[in-house]
C-alpha cells in the first residue's frame, strides 16, 4: 500500500486536472483554483524542510570546522535574522525586511545577472572553436545573422539582410516549432507514464 496510495493519488489528481481543464462543469465548480490552492499549501509545508536542510549542512560545516566555516555562521545568521524580521514586521513596504530586500538582495541579483554578459562572451569563445558539427552550424548561422544586423551587410550585398530574415523566419522558426512540438509530446508522454504509474522514480524508495 505504501506504493499504491501515492500512485493512486497521483493518477487521480492528474485526471481531475485534465477534467478541470476541459470540461465546463469542472470550471464552474472552480476545480483548478481549488487544486492550485491545495498545491500552494502543500508546497509551503515543504519550505521548512529546505530551511532544515540548509541549517543542517551549514551546522555540520561549523561543527566540523570545515573550510570557510565562518561563512556558514554568516549564512545562518543572515537567514535567521531575516526570518525573524519577516515574522515580526511582515513583508509590507517600509518594513526592515523590505529594506533589506531592496537594498541588498536586489542589487546582488542584478549584479549577478549583469555578469551573464561576460559569461556569454566566454561561451561565444567556446562556440567559435567549432568543437562539433552542430556547434559549427550554430557559429556559421550566428555569424551570418550578426553580420546582417550591421551596416557591413548592406555594403557586401543587398541580399544579405533579406537572406538573414529568411533564415530567422523559415528554417529557424521551423526548427523552433519542431523542437517545441517534440518537447510537448515528450512532456505529455511523461505525464501519461506517471498518471498510469509506469514511471515511478518520483516516489523514491516507495516505488519498490
Amino acid at each position: 500500500m505504501k506504493k499504491e496510495i501515492p500512485l493512486a493519488i497521483t493518477g487521480l489528481s492528474g485526471l481531475m486536472v485534465i477534467v478541470g481543464e476541459y470540461l465546463r462543469f469542472a470550471q464552474n465548480l472552480g476545480w483548478l483554483t481549488t487544486f492550485n490552492t491545495w498545491f500552494q499549501v502543500a508546497t509551503t509545508v515543504a519550505f521548512p524542510i529546505g530551511l532544515v536542510s540548509l541549517t543542517l549542512v551549514h551546522g555540520h560545516n561549523i561543527q566540523r570546522k570545515r573550510a570557510d566555516w565562518g561563512l556558514s555562521i554568516l549564512m545562518l545568521a543572515a537567514t535567521y535574522v531575516y526570518l525573524a524580521f519577516d515574522l515580526v514586521s511582515g513583508p509590507a513596504n517600509g518594513t526592515v525586511m523590505s529594506w533589506v530586500y531592496t537594498a541588498y538582495i536586489s542589487p546582488v541579483a542584478a549584479t549577478l545577472y549583469a555578469m551573464t554578459s561576460f559569461l556569454i562572451t566566454s561561451a561565444t569563445f567556446r562556440t567559435f572553436r567549432c568543437r562539433n558539427r552542430e556547434a559549427t552550424l550554430l557559429v556559421v548561422a550566428a555569424l551570418f545573422i550578426v553580420v546582417a544586423q550591421s551596416p557591413l551587410a548592406g555594403l557586401i550585398s543587398h541580399y544579405w539582410g533579406a537572406t538573414a530574415t529568411w533564415i530567422i523566419n523559415y528554417p529557424s522558426n521551423a526548427a523552433f516549432r519542431a523542437i517545441t512540438l517534440g518537447a510537448y509530446l515528450g512532456a505529455f508522454a511523461t505525464a501519461i507514464r506517471i498518471l498510469l504509474g509506469i514511471e515511478r522514480a518520483h516516489i523514491g524508495s516507495l516505488a519498490k
Binding site: E21, Y22, L23, R24, F25, Q27, N28, L29
Partner: peptide, 10 residues
Amino acid sequence: ATAAHLWLFQ
C-alpha cells in the same frame, strides 16, 4: 450549474 452546463467542453 444547470444541466445544460454539465458535460459540455470548454
